[in-house]
């Protein structure tokens, strides 16, 4: 029987030891407050806003709804790990160029969700983009510029000039 009060999380391919943590801490809390990875944002804490989206075992999930200790032994990827060298990804660059960032709070979650969408579906229909991003709430942009950024990435990737 494994007791995970001290546990190890594998984030962006690196092992991180979590010590002296309370058992009820969410993955979002542990990433931000214990592992110095504040890319995922905390807002609703109930899985409605998507600003805390990370990839867990290949699936985009809300890190606020993952019990951190239960993520031991699983693969976690955050917005910090999208480009290992820390440079902007094509999605992040497109968000900037299309003006898809206003206050920026929802942006990391959206960027993770867009990467996941385009990995699974390289040329999504407009309705598929809306569906894939329906769990990420933005209160500034009205989404038009976010969808424009997705379209721009799709176009560039299709032309092979990424």
């Amino acid at each position: 029987m494994s007791n995970n009060e001290i546990y190890t999380l594998t984030v962006n391919g690196r092992d991180h030891h979590v010590k002296d943590a309370w058992v009820g801490e969410s993955l979002l809390y542990v990433l931000r407050e214990r592992l110095a990875m504040p890319g995922a944002k905390g807002a609703c804490e109930q899985g409605e806003c998507g600003s805390c989206t990370v990839i867990l075992d290949g699936k985009a999930v809300c890190s606020c709804l993952v019990l951190a200790a239960s993520a031991a032994g699983r693969e976690i990827a955050t917005v910090e790990g999208l480009n290992p060298d820390g440079s902007l990804t094509d999605v992040q660059q497109a968000f900037i160029e299309e003006g898809a960032v206003q206050c920026g709070f929802c942006t990391p979650g959206l960027v993770v969700a867009v990467h996941k969408l385009l990995e699974e579906n390289p040329s999504p229909a407009a309705v598929e983009v809306k569906e894939a991003l329906s769990g990420n709430i933005c209160r500034c942009t009205g989404y038009g510029r976010i969808f424009a950024a997705v379209d721009a990435v799709v176009a560039v990737r299709k032309s092979g000039s990424r």
Binding site: G47, E48, G50, T53, L56, K59, A60, V61, C62, L65, V66, A113, E131, A132, S134, G135, N136
Partner: peptide, 8 residues
């Protein structure tokens, strides 16, 4: 929920 909720 959302795609994130349905994935979990």
């Amino acid at each position: 929920g959302s795609p994130q909720i349905r994935a979990a």
